[in-house]
Nucleic acid binder design. Structure first.
Lengths: 149, 149
DNA sequence: TACTAATTAGGAATCATTCCTATTATGAAC
DNA sequence: GTTCATAATAGGAATGATTCCTAATTAGTA
């Protein structure tokens, strides 16, 4: 999934993948997928839970986590892990740089090249990378405008 | 603190800073600082607790966390935050890239330039970075040798 | 329409970290 | 060396996102 796909394209791709892999398309799953595809700010499990509950009132946190786990396992979702805030979920699974706002908590993607190839790191250090994480913490355009920073 | 300082230099710097700032140099603090200065693999709080306890048997986890907090507050320690493992602590406070081994859990520093300046990010996106986090997850030289990868 | 294995709901358990409070001990003053 | 104020410590309870467990439900198939 590239960084410029539309929400509809992302949603269709996810549903198609699950159908092909034989997963049941429950209302809970369709709602979660819909939110993940539309929300570019990388929501967390509790946030998803609250929003899905408006349309599927009896959904439980277990189901949210179970669904997120399943999507992760199938390589359709990337989990951004933190310790001082809840984990966030990103339908853009390709490696990229995240911009994390300390004020509003929203997470945006930074388009463009990645700095170091895994080959370069391996050659230089003997360390074999299999995944990476690039993040900038700071203040997004919107929050900076509001506070007249 | 640059990446090539010796353990002794690091330890001396930390003790000097605390003394200047008026902190009490308790045996607990000196032990924790000694370990942090010598252990280049970025230990966590529980690990530090277990090791310090051998020399200061009545130390508690509260004290370990309190000391780490204090060092962080004074800008002498960088906290690496994870959700699926305990936090790690790094006396190298300058921005740099970390190499995190999925087998043994050790964390090493990657020397060299950082890829993007904060100015470049601000100019490109309007997002103002104040901190960054660069990590590669994979397998270190030692673990790869052991498993004949 | 019935079946069954996958999915879900609900709640208990986990565990690193934070919080709270009484006790202790460092470093300064004398 | 003694005293003292207060920072620091020990111990344990509280927190909260996530994981685990199990019985009930349901999507998709035949």
């Amino acid at each position: 999934m590239n960084l410029s796909a539309t929400p509809e394209e992302i949603e269709r791709k996810l549903i198609k993948s699950l159908r092909e892999k034989g997963y049941k398309l429950t209302s809970q799953r369709l709602e979660i997928i819909g939110l993940l595809a539309r929300d570019m700010t990388h929501p967390g499990a509790t946030d998803l839970f609250r929003r899905v509950r408006k349309r599927v009132p009896r959904i439980s946190m277990s189901t949210v986590y179970y669904t997120l786990d399943m999507l992760k396992k199938e390589g359709l979702l990337r989990e951004l892990e933190f310790y001082d805030r809840d984990n966030r979920y990103d339908v853009t699974v390709a490696d990229h740089i995240n911009l994390i706002c300390r004020k509003c908590g929203k997470i945006a993607d930074l388009p463009g090249e990645l700095p170091f190839s895994t080959e370069a790191v391996l050659k230089k250090t003997g360390f074999q990378p299999v995944a990476m994480r690039y993040e900038y913490y700071g203040y997004c355009k919107e929050c900076r405008r509001k506070r007249a920073r």
